[in-house]
């Protein structure tokens, strides 16, 4: 295990070091300490590393991650794992707004609560939140899956495209064009896998969730839907 003291060596050296590894090393286990809410920790990583971030982070931790497994032993600021391509990001604490924004692949697990706009514009990422999610979550979400063990805030899935949303608790309100949909066998199977990979299978069962998705009424302009624009 390599330990990197962020306070002592700085952000630029951290990211440069992680970028240089690029899958050609056997130094695959890293621990980052003294994070103190810094921004852009472990962004743009493109190697099968196992990175543990000890402490709380600022904006965009693990942004655009590829391949790496990044565990945050603390809470994350806005935009954790934004535009993630692949790999896994696990946040032990809470995540601020925009968690997993525009993510295209991989798995984001938030063991606490996620704030507003979780999964905004998601494009293929899977997100598992053990707690609750805030307002405007999954806004314009295009594809991928979001699993929420707790409750969802206002306007869930507003202007949703083809992302699938599974919520176990209450939904404060649904956004424009988002509706509850039938839970079929394929969805239960998908959920079972996501709960297992999201380290949540001991906490919840697939049958306890409801599924939400797009009504697809906004897909082509119609003046009779003008109130939703």
């Amino acid at each position: 295990m390599q330990t990197f003291d962020l306070a002592a060596r700085g952000l630029r050296e951290l990211n440069q070091t992680l970028h240089t590894l690029n899958g050609t090393t056997n130094q695959t286990a890293w621990e980052i300490v003294n994070t103190r809410g810094s921004h852009a920790i472990a962004v743009g990583v493109d190697a099968p590393l196992d990175i543990t971030v000890r402490g709380t982070t600022g904006y965009y931790c693990a942004g655009m991650n590829k391949q790496a497994t990044i565990r945050v032993k603390g809470s994350t600021g806005p935009g954790v794992a934004e535009n993630m391509m692949s790999g896994t990001v696990i946040v032990d604490g809470d995540a601020s707004q925009y968690a997993g924004a525009t993510g295209r692949g991989g798995l984001l697990v938030i063991k606490g609560n996620a704030s507003s706009r979780c999964g905004i514009s998601m494009k293929g990422i899977d997100i598992v939140v053990h707690g609750n999610i805030g307002h405007m979550s999954a806004f314009m979400a295009q594809s991928g899956n979001m699993v929420v063990l707790g409750d969802a805030g206002d306007a869930l899935g507003d202007s949703l495209y083809e992302a699938r949303l599974f919520v176990r608790g209450s939904v404060k309100s649904l956004g424009a064009d988002c509706i509850e949909k039938e839970m079929r066998a394929e969805h239960l199977e998908l959920l079972e896998d996501l709960l297992r990979r999201g380290e949540a299978d001991a906490k919840a069962k697939p049958e306890e969730f409801r599924r939400y998705g797009s009504a697809r009424k906004l897909y082509n302009f119609n003046i009779d839907n003008a109130d939703a624009y």
Binding site: N15, H39, A40, Y59, Y60, M64, P78, S121, Y219, N220
Partner: peptide, 30 residues
Amino acid sequence: IDQRSACRHPDWTGPDDLEIKILEIREITD
């Protein structure tokens, strides 16, 4: 389907956030 693009960025708003977004892009591209 009609594609509707957002008018604001999904993960930042305003110049103080933009500064942090630019930092992230610079870090990703060294």
